[in-house]
């Protein structure tokens, strides 16, 4: 067990009779890159809003750094919630000066210069925020979260509004920061993003927590291997498989079957097995389960 950075117990938020967040509990430990995954309106932003002191919880409790809900905690966290919020009549540099002052950053000028360079806005540092494009605003917001080298980053849809190149850059940046040993909590509805960036993941739906696990556990299933097979006569394949103990049907698709096998089963062995049974496969591949499929499975089950 690592050191707990965040601990959430039965956190809830009701808007009138609607439960936006319903009895959520989980812990985040140091150095985790923790993904909060869920469709739009599943309560991700509301949860982060409560954790960041701007939304009042209706029930439950949370604690940062095992120090309760102390306002000072947030000075150790760099956070971007929903939209980039800055003073439009001030320049990027002046805006960051305010953030640095609030957070009590040592030698703010050097820190500001460094984060502006990191997010590629140093050349535009003296332009007013209102002249920025959406992507630049988002990058400034991410830069702002890095100010003062905080222990934890809380990012809500950080690649929102960025072009493909920007998305790749920001993901790269987040992965790099995660590897440097920082704790990151990131909310997204983009499964691919979570899969690429995170080590751990919580799945939310309609305000409820469905599952918390490591990404590897979620998509890896290390002790089994999935193999996709296809043949002319699929019904015969099915009969053979159902008589077999080594593998079973994981999922049926139109012209193929995905089989759950032991780890030792290679595609070669599988091919040989069916050949001996008198079946010529027209499709054979090792199947990598994506988070997307797992996610849909979990959502379906609930």
């Amino acid at each position: 067990m690592g050191e707990k950075v965040l601990s959430i117990k039965s956190l809830s938020k009701n808007y009138k009779s609607f439960a936006a967040v319903n009895d959520i509990s989980f812990d985040v430990e140091r150095q985790m890159v923790f993904g909060l995954l869920g469709p739009n309106g599943s309560g991700k932003t509301t949860t982060l809003g409560m954790l960041m002191g701007v939304i009042r919880p209706s029930g439950g409790d949370f604690s940062w750094f095992e120090n309760g809900q102390n306002d000072e905690n947030r000075k150790r966290i760099g956070s971007l919630l929903e939209t980039p919020n800055f003073y439009p009549y001030l320049t990027a540099k002046q805006n960051l000066e305010i953030v640095a002052k609030i957070k009590g950053v040592d030698s703010p000028d050097a820190a500001i210069e460094s984060v502006l360079k990191t997010v590629g806005l140093y050349d535009r540092r003296d332009s007013k925020f209102r002249t920025y494009s959406l992507g630049m605003k988002q990058r400034l917001a991410i830069g702002s979260t890095l100010l003062g080298d905080p222990e934890v980053l809380v990012l809500d849809e950080p690649t929102n509004g960025l072009d493909p190149q920007g998305i790749a850059e920001i993901r790269e940046l987040i992965i790099r920061i995660g590897k440097s040993g920082k704790t990151i909590i990131i909310a997204s509805h983009i499964l691919d993003e979570i899969q690429k960036i995170c080590t751990h993941c919580a799945i939310l739906r309609k305000g409820k927590l469905l599952q918390v696990s490591t990404i590897d556990h979620l998509i890896g299933n290390q002790d089994v291997r999935l193999i996709k097979v296809g043949a002319g006569d699929m019904s015969k394949v099915k009969t053979i498989v159902s008589a077999q103990e080594d593998f079973s049907i994981y999922k049926e698709e139109e012209e193929t079957l995905i089989l759950r096998c032991t780890k030792e089963t290679t595609a070669e062995k599988m091919n040989q097995f069916f050949y001996e049974k008198g079946i010529i496969l027209n499709e054979l591949s090792v199947f990598n389960e994506s988070l997307e499929n797992q996610f849909l499975e979990i959502i379906k089950k609930s």
Binding site: G53, N85, Y87, I102
Partner: peptide, 21 residues
């Protein structure tokens, strides 16, 4: 009211000011 319009009041709290501050 600028602080409310630009959501900077919200951001100030997120960055670490208390509501009392």
């Amino acid at each position: 009211s600028n602080e409310i319009k630009y959501k900077t009041q919200r951001q100030n709290v997120i960055d670490g000011l208390s509501k009392r501050d």
